[in-house]
Write a protein that binds this DNA or RNA. Structure first.
Lengths: 219, 219
DNA sequence: CATAGGATAATTGTATCCAAAATTTTCCCG
DNA sequence: CGGGAAAATTTTGGATACAATTATCCTATG
């Protein structure tokens, strides 16, 4: 994957990015307390950018922050995850149909390229960021910036569990197949089929994520 | 309205609230630059809570913040407002239908009470906060916290223009009528009618907001 | 022995101060 | 007189220092 991660403009945003990855990677478990001082020392910065990063992650739904009481990795309940998937079905379904009309040979080539890169990714984090890139390229031609931002926002609290569920010998092959079917349907301009495939894709993901969430909830 | 605004736990959140109201009230115009030092002096605090409040408002989509270049009141383009209303139609439509099944005499009484309070509100800001309260009570019984949060988020960048469009002798009466029709349809358990009324309500609001936005865009 | 109360420590929120970047002004040269 | 480079000013981002709040632990008491 040749995506060069451009240097963050500010310390706070760079921190937010690294903390996001750390949470996705399971470095902090749900319910665990993130101490400002500790994070500041670990990354060699002061507490000010740490606070801004934590506020950012709270806004994304990855943390629960209470006044004077610290930030904890959020532990979404099964009903909330279910709800997030219902919202994704609405938003992404709409985006897909709108984007489908705007796709052209160039954007389709890009989509295939991203899918190839995705299947070559070796580690779990690479897989997830590749999946995000694929879907953004899929929905991008719709020209709907707020919906696209919403798509990212609805995924953020969920991806953590997807990463967990991506052990070796899991649903990886079916996932890739569904992506390729999506590309084919979009190339054919078949909105109904494309939307059906996407919905099945999301329903399958929902089941996997709910299972991973339930598993983690036991600890 | 007997809602006592509880004192904010922290300076930053109190500031965010006041700035939000100031922007909704048109105290700052779209594109205008918000200086940290000036706001800090105005409210008698240091720049740290100001920065956190500005970051919060940026997350809510009311401000555009550029690195080392200050925060400006966002000036959403017409297409983005259009997009936000499309999203509201999806999310609020879904919420309404789900809530409709859960409403009971008690929640309906509360809804009527809020509508009465709304019609008694004298100033524009009171009208808007009353409208938010009404819709939250309308959707609340659905038991969908993330969707409700999304509802608030989708309104935030728009309400500013609604306030503008609420001069005397405007659509206020039609607005109230639609609310009462909504209550009646929900009380009757008629999902189809309720959803239709809500969609008309939102479409009418969309037109008003787009007009206000276009008017402001000229300056 | 369990528990309420209070001192103490740990942690967060805010103010003050310094560094980096951007904007404005000034000044020189064409 | 106009244009552009460079210095000065302004403004933001980050570090250090202090105050406010919460959590912990110890003791005294029923």
């Amino acid at each position: 994957m040749l995506v060069t991660r451009l240097a963050a403009a500010t310390t706070a945003s760079a921190l937010a990015q690294r903390l996001r990855e750390a949470i996705d990677a399971g470095q902090w478990r749900p319910g665990e307390l993130l101490r400002q001082e500790q994070i500041a020392a670990e990354y060699g910065v002061s507490r000010i950018p740490v606070r801004e990063a934590l506020a950012q992650l709270q806004n994304e739904g990855l943390l629960d922050v209470a006044h004077y009481r610290g930030a904890r990795v959020s532990r979404p309940r099964a009903e909330e995850i279910d709800e997030l998937f219902d919202l994704r079905l609405m938003v992404e379904g709409d985006l897909l149909v709108r984007a489908l009309r705007q796709h052209d040979p160039r954007s389709l080539r890009e989509l295939k390229r991203l899918q190839d890169a995705l299947e070559d990714a070796e580690d779990r984090l690479g897989w997830i960021s590749g999946d995000i890139a694929f879907h953004e390229a899929l929905y991008g031609p719709a020209g709907r910036p707020r919906s696209l931002a919403l798509f990212r926002q609805l995924r953020a609290p969920i991806d953590r569990f997807s990463v967990q569920a991506l052990g070796p010998g899991t649903r990886k092959q079916g996932w890739a197949d569904e992506h390729r079917q999506l590309i084919a349907a979009v190339a054919a301009g078949d909105a109904i089929t494309a939307r059906t495939i996407l919905e099945d894709h999301l329903q399958a993901t929902r089941a996997v994520v709910l299972a991973a969430c339930a598993e983690q909830g036991e600890s």
